[in-house]
Design a protein around this nucleic acid. Structure first.
Lengths: 144, 144
DNA sequence: GCTTGACCCTGTAGCGGCTACAGGGTCCAT
DNA sequence: ATGGACCCTGTAGCCGCTACAGGGTCAAGC
């Protein structure tokens, strides 16, 4: 149980690949650790905490920019957390939007799949539904 | 009402940007049209149909590879449409998976947001939930 | 006939968030 | 001294566009 972690150990501990850890350092998300005599990165507990925070945020779907903002905020311990709340709520709203879009999509795909009469392509309801002469415009994902 | 469309007209008619149309040509998804004397692309109705098919498929979330496969299949009018059905079903299954993942995500984000007691960052439930010492592992998106 | 401005052309680079090399160096056990 | 696991840097690739830069073309208006 040393207090120093190699990049591989850090990655395993936080659930990130080695290349990803280096990538986070490159883009300034994770502070560069000190180096050993052999130029290996030597991480400590604070890096592990930081990286775990990042990974967990990413797993929850926050963008790297959002993670950056959350990290900054997390460091300003005595300011009000309204900004944190705002980021989380914005993300929640977006997730809800995506769910709605995907649900509409699912319904449409289900309709399409039901139209398949398992015959030749010429009579295929799916192809027909995708073709411009039959299917009109798709009801479509918000952002498109 | 000419039968020939410029790239801009084609794009407007099918709901794609000019750059996107050129991109589809470059990657071999849309056949190169003939050119005018001034080297402008001159599209006809068949290109419009093709591009509309592509856009509608994309709007429904099919990947460009899936679209390519669907286009190939659509051209083989007398073969059975089982392959078409398979692509559509695979995509439907993936959409359903994404909905499930996002729904779990939403629940977790909602839980987080509810923890916000609107005080200082040091007491923020959201930051706490993201921090390694408090929040355990996220229940996570399938593919991650 | 000359200018203006909308359109078109090619080619290349960028986005996010990694991932995957290539081509080397280090460290530790045998 | 040698093998293999790990580490280093740097660069290019993935998807599906999008956005330039730096030019050419065309039709309308003066």
């Amino acid at each position: 149980m040393s207090d120093v972690l190699s990049i591989g150990e850090l990655g395993r501990a936080a659930g990130a690949k080695v290349e990803t850890v280096r990538y986070y350092e490159r883009i300034g998300l994770l502070a560069p650790p000190r180096r050993t005599a052999g130029n290996y990165r030597a991480y400590d507990r604070s890096h592990l905490n930081r990286l775990s925070f990042i990974r967990r945020s990413r797993d929850l779907g926050f963008s790297l920019d959002q993670v950056r903002a959350l990290l900054d905020l997390a460091d300003q311990r005595d300011r009000p957390c309204a900004a944190v709340d705002e980021i989380a709520r914005a993300h929640l709203a977006e997730v809800e939007r995506k769910i709605a879009d995907l649900t509409a999509l699912r319904d449409e795909l289900e309709g399409m799949v039901h139209q398949c009469r398992h015959g030749a392509v010429r009579d295929c309801g799916i192809i027909e539904a995708l073709s411009p002469e039959s299917g009109r415009q798709a009801p479509l994902p918000h952002g498109a």
